[in-house]
Structure formats: structure tokens, C-alpha cells
Design a protein around this nucleic acid. Structure first.
Lengths: 213, 213
DNA sequence: ACCTGAACACCGTTCAAGT
DNA sequence: ACCTGAACACCGTTCAAGT
């Protein structure tokens, strides 16, 4: 079936199939992708340059789903918290994707727009320009690290070789398991960071500058 | 050359070669590893069960180098800071390894001992058992996320498509580059988290319990 | 026990050939 | 432009054969 009248493939379709493959099998391959789309492997290369571009496609599609979740009108602390939660949830829902993504540079425009919104909210909150990127990096580290943590096995630390009363074994026994554990740690980290930021904020700042878009 | 009088291979040697390969080429393959050791690929399988076990071997070897760096006698805040820094530096020096490691569970005993020391220091500092694992998870997320950040390209966010006065572009322009940027963000995050922990610590705690080992 | 070479079932990518 | 099948240079793993 060469050159069908209307194309069988397009980039969004490939992105969707790759994400589904990733969710189902923890990884994806070009042959697997082609098979799930009912198409020859070589056909994929008419729409993407290679496997890496497929990954970037998936990153972009996730970004869109996350942008719509954030409401930027409101107190800065709440905006930032919402952004980090949206980020962590969007990627936390696809842990295999996160592991694949950490190998590549951020290029998807949707993601960049999202970071731009965050930078804007922080600036309006009274943080100085020279601190902005460091704050963003810390929040990014938290969100991505926590998204990976969602994917962690139920028992992150194997306490088999430890004495039952060793501090680590006690700590593991006292904490919840699975997603409850990951959620609690994430909220703790987020709270600690936001509290610390609040205390370091330029004190006498009253709100967004008048010419902010 | 079958069955040489003294073995050509052992596990520590394999671990060293794998780390070198990882540092040099961002990834490692079993054929590449065998070649660098001057040995047939199939020989490796007499010492390790497969590629995954090689990775776990490397994790363990890094753990050892990190444990010796921490001095646990001192004020808790300094101990914890030292631990997180040692962690981040040990893995930050081998970014490709970090990306490979996030796919696997923690099993290396050296790493477990290190977490146990951390749990002990936190308990002595007055944190309650039910918070310990969440605190450890937050510190872990910071260290590992920051280690990945060390590996990030010089320009993490491509500002090409953005207006020069967009908040993100301004933030990028105002921040240092490369390892200086990653270091500053790491220290900011660590400071924020430790400050927040200090304020949430059980207030009237005076030091390690007498029967602490 | 420890090394080898050959074999197996995979990968990602390219390319001439079709319409 | 868009799909195909065949080919290429790789992977990780297994296994019978050697000493």
C-alpha cells in the first residue's frame, strides 16, 4: 500500500502512540511504535528525524495538558505551588517518560511558555532578577525529582540487611507507602521551599508592577 | 586463550571500566565494555548476570567514595548539609551514571548505610519518626535532581523564541552559566530546606539520646 | 571456574522503489 | 509527498566447546 490518498500518519498521532507505548512498556522502540500504528518502521522517518524527535514530540504534548491547569491570577505563593503541582502531576502520571526526558534539552515551546509564566509570577512577587533562575531551578528540581519518586518501587529502600531498630528501618516503618509516601514528601518539600522563599522575599513589595503584561 | 591460570576479570574491575565508559561516552554497552577490557563479550557473563548488575556494581563503588566524606560528629544542620553535598558531588561527577541509575531500585549496601547515618542524625536532631522518611526523600530528591542539573547543557532553556524582555529571558540573562549556575541553585535549595526544617524541628530537644550508638 | 566464537532475536536508521 | 521492504551496523544474552 504505497502513498495512500490521505496520509496515515502525522506528528500528533505518533506522539500519542509513543506515550501509550511508554506507559505500557516502560520504554518505546521504533519498530514497536510502527507496529502499534499498523505501519512500516521506515514510514515514521517521513514525519520525524529519528527517535529523539519522537521524544521531544511527547514532551510538547504533555506541556500543553499542563499549561491549562494553572490559574495565574492570585497570590504568588498559590500560583507557584499550583505550577509545581501541575508540573509534577503531568509528568508524574508518565514516569517512564520522565526517565527518558532527563537525557535531553528542553526545546518544546509550550514548556518554555510555562516557565516564562512562572518567572513572571516570581518577579511580580518581588524577587530580584538575579535570583529568578535559581529559584526556578530549585522548583524544577523538586518537580522532576518528585515525578521520578512517584515511579519509585513501593519499597524504595530495601531494609532487609538492616537491624529492625536501625534509624532507617524505623523511619521506613513509620512512613506510609506508595503514592501516599511520595505525595507527602512532595508537599513537605514544596512547603519548606515556599516558606523559605517567603522569608527571603523583598520585604516591602506590594504587588505586580503596573506595566506587567 | 581459554581458562587462563589467573582470572582476567573480577567485579570491581568491571565496575571501574563501566564507569570510565559511561564518563567517556554518556552510555555503555556490553560489547564496548568487553573491548575496553580486552575480553570477549560472553566472558562478562561469568561475573555478572547482565547489564543491570553492572549498573548496580557501579552504584556501589560510588557509594563507598561518598561515605568517607561525611563527618557525623557536629551540629545536625551541618551534618545533613555535608551528607547532601557529598551525595550530590559523588553523583554529579558522573552525570551519565545518574541518568542510568534512576531506572533502578536502590540495593547497594553501602548506599543503605549512608541513608541510615542520615536517619540517625535527623532523629538525634529531634525530628519525629513519622517525618524522617519524608525529610530523607526531600533531601534525596534535591541531591539527585541537582546532580542531573550538573549534567544539563549550558543553556538549559533555549530563549531563542522568546522576547528579550520576557521574564524568562531576563532571568536567564541575569544568572551565571554552567556549573556556577547549578551550584548556586543547589545551595539555594539546600539552604531553603534546612532553614524550613530548623523551624519545624521539635523545639525543646537538647541533643542525641544517651543510648544512641 | 573461566574464557571463547557462533548464534539468536532484537535495535535505529537509510535508501531505492513504488504511486 | 508518503508508504514499503530490504539492508546495514549495531545491541544484550545464551550456549556448546575448550582447558
Amino acid at each position: 500500500m504505497p502513498r495512500p490518498p490521505s496520509p496515515l500518519l502525522d506528528r500528533p498521532t505518533i506522539a500519542r502512540a509513543a506515550l501509550a507505548e511508554l506507559d505500557a512498556r516502560e520504554t518505546f522502540t521504533m519498530p514497536g511504535l510502527a507496529k502499534s500504528l499498523g505501519v512500516a518502521v521506515s514510514s515514521l522517518y517521513h514525519h520525524v528525524k529519528g527517535r529523539e524527535e519522537v521524544i521531544e514530540l511527547v514532551r510538547g504534548s504533555i506541556a500543553e495538558s499542563m499549561n491549562s491547569d494553572v490559574d495565574w491570577s492570585g497570590e504568588w505563593r498559590e500560583c507557584v505551588a499550583e505550577w509545581v503541582r501541575a508540573y509534577r502531576n503531568a509528568f508524574g502520571a508518565h514516569p517512564a517518560l520522565v526517565r527518558v526526558l532527563t537525557r535531553q534539552t528542553v526545546a518544546a515551546p509550550g514548556i518554555l511558555a510555562s516557565y516564562d509564566n512562572l518567572a513572571s509570577a516570581l518577579r511580580d512577587a518581588g524577587f530580584v532578577d538575579s535570583d529568578l533562575l535559581h529559584i526556578i531551578t530549585v522548583l524544577d528540581t523538586l518537580a522532576l525529582g518528585s515525578a521520578l519518586d512517584v515511579a519509585a518501587p513501593d519499597d524504595v529502600w530495601s531494609t532487609e540487611g538492616l537491624a529492625a531498630d536501625s534509624p532507617l528501618a524505623v523511619a521506613v516503618a513509620a512512613a506510609p507507602r506508595g503514592s501516599e509516601r511520595a505525595d507527602a514528601a512532595f508537599e513537605l518539600g514544596l512547603g519548606l521551599i515556599l516558606d523559605g522563599l517567603e522569608r527571603r522575599r523583598r520585604p516591602n513589595h506590594e504587588g505586580p508592577s503596573p506595566r506587567a503584561s
